[in-house]
């Protein structure tokens, strides 16, 4: 990673300018050119180091969401992961080392929408789906400290 890329990652996880030409504003702060900044971000994006440049939304702020988990029998894991991934309301799905081996986030316009997805996954898989919505957040996620070691 080059110096510009590191500085973009370190300094701009928040506070991205809400101005007509935000990359030019960032470039000014970093003594670079606008197209260098855009190019560096394209590179970081293409290599998967960043997932995007944009907004991180508060859970619950744009509808209802929950963290759901289920215990898929190992021989049915792929089948059930595919079933879960098939819902557009599911935006993250992780396999974890636990009896409860599938953990996924469901986001819908309202709580009824979340309930419908849970009921449908439960009905089609024949498995109990744990519904663990966030009740309180103890960290305002303002970015993540990176250590260049």
């Amino acid at each position: 990673m080059n110096e510009l890329e590191k500085r973009l990652l370190d300094g701009f996880q928040r506070g991205f300018p809400l101005t007509e030409r935000p990359f030019a504003e960032i470039a000014r702060q970093l003594n670079a050119e606008e197209d260098q900044v855009i190019g560096a971000l394209e590179g970081l994006s293409e290599s998967g180091i960043i997932s995007r440049v944009g907004a991180a939304f508060a859970p619950g702020g744009i509808g209802a969401s929950t963290l759901a988990a289920l215990a898929a029998p190992p021989e049915r894991l792929e089948e059930i992961a595919e079933l879960v991934n098939g819902f557009e309301e599911v935006n993250h799905n992780y396999e974890r080392e636990h009896r409860l081996n599938l953990w996924f986030v469901i986001t819908a316009p309202d709580r009824d929408g979340v309930d419908r997805v849970i009921a449908e996954i439960s009905r089609r898989s024949g498995l109990e789906v744990l519904d663990l919505p966030m009740l309180e957040s103890y960290r305002l996620n303002l970015g993540f400290d990176l250590q260049w070691s």
Partner: peptide
Amino acid sequence: IVRMRRLLDQGVIRRIGVIPNHYA
């Protein structure tokens, strides 16, 4: 821009920026 700033002030948007991929 005005609407996004308001969403940020209201906390609907937590932050706008470079979103790193921790795995990568």
